[in-house]
Design a protein around this nucleic acid. Sequence first.
DNA 1: GATAGCGCTGACATTCCCGTCAGTACTTCT
DNA 2: AGAAGTACTGACGGGAATGTCAGCGCTATC
Lengths: 115, 115
Amino acid sequence: METRHRPSLAGDCPVDAALEVIRGRWKGTILWRLEDGPMRTSELRRSIPGITERMLIRHLHELVADRILEREDAGTIPPHVTYRLSEYGRTLAPIVWGLCRWGRLHQERRATQSL
Amino acid sequence: METRHRPSLAGDCPVDAALEVIRGRWKGTILWRLEDGPMRTSELRRSIPGITERMLIRHLHELVADRILEREDAGTIPPHVTYRLSEYGRTLAPIVWGLCRWGRLHQERRATQSL
DNA sequence: GATAGCGCTGACATTCCCGTCAGTACTTCT
DNA sequence: AGAAGTACTGACGGGAATGTCAGCGCTATC
C-alpha cells in the first residue's frame, strides 16, 4: 500500500494542522460522502463525478494513514473493500457540516453576484 | 447527521466550494490572525513565521477578491495598508474556530502517538 | 471465451502552487 | 550618503499535486 509520508508543513498554527489533513482536491467531498455511512470504493467513485479511480484511492489511503478513515477488506475475491469514518474521523463532522453550510451560502452569493 | 436527503451524485459539492476559498498554504493562518482584528501587511508578515511577503500579499489579494477580506489603503507615503475581515468573511469564523480546536486535538494526538 | 467488474499499483505527463530574486517609488533613520 | 522600511509587482524555476494510461489477479456473467 502506498504510504508516502508527507513532510509536516512547518508552523504550529492549529488551523494549519487541521487543514493539512483536509488538503487535497477531493478530500472534502470524500468526507462529506462518507458522513452518510460506509461505502465501497467503487460506490464512492460513482458518487463523485469527475474523480478518477487513481485519485480516489490515493486520497482514501492518505485519510486512512491519518486515522480519519478505516478500511475494511472482506478478503473475498473479487475484492470487497469498505471505507468508513473512524471514531476520530467523526470528530471532524462539525467542521464538514460547517463547510457544507457555508459553501452553499458562498455558491448562492457567487451566483447572484456574477449573473 | 441527517444530510441524507442529498442527490446520489455530489456534483458541485458545497464542501468543495468552501474549501476552494480556504485552499492555499497560508490562508487558514491568515484568517486566524485576522480574527483578532485588522492588521497591517507588515504586521501580518511578522506574525506568521515562515511566510514570505510574496505569498502573504498574493493570498491577501485573493481573499479580497473573494470578498472575505477588505483592504484599506490610507493613501499615505510610505504606504499604510490594513486588512480586515469583511462582514461576509466573519461568517467563516465558526469554521476557523472549529479548525483551530480540532487542529489542537490533532496535534496532541500525533504527539502522543509518535512517542 | 470474451467481457466487465473489483481494488489497486507503477510509470509517466501535466498543471499549478509556492517560493526566490529583483526591482519600484517614496520616506525616515543613522 | 546609505540603509532600512513600506506595500507591491513581474519573471522564473522547482516541485508537489493531480491526471492519464496501462496492467495485475481473480470471478461472475453473457
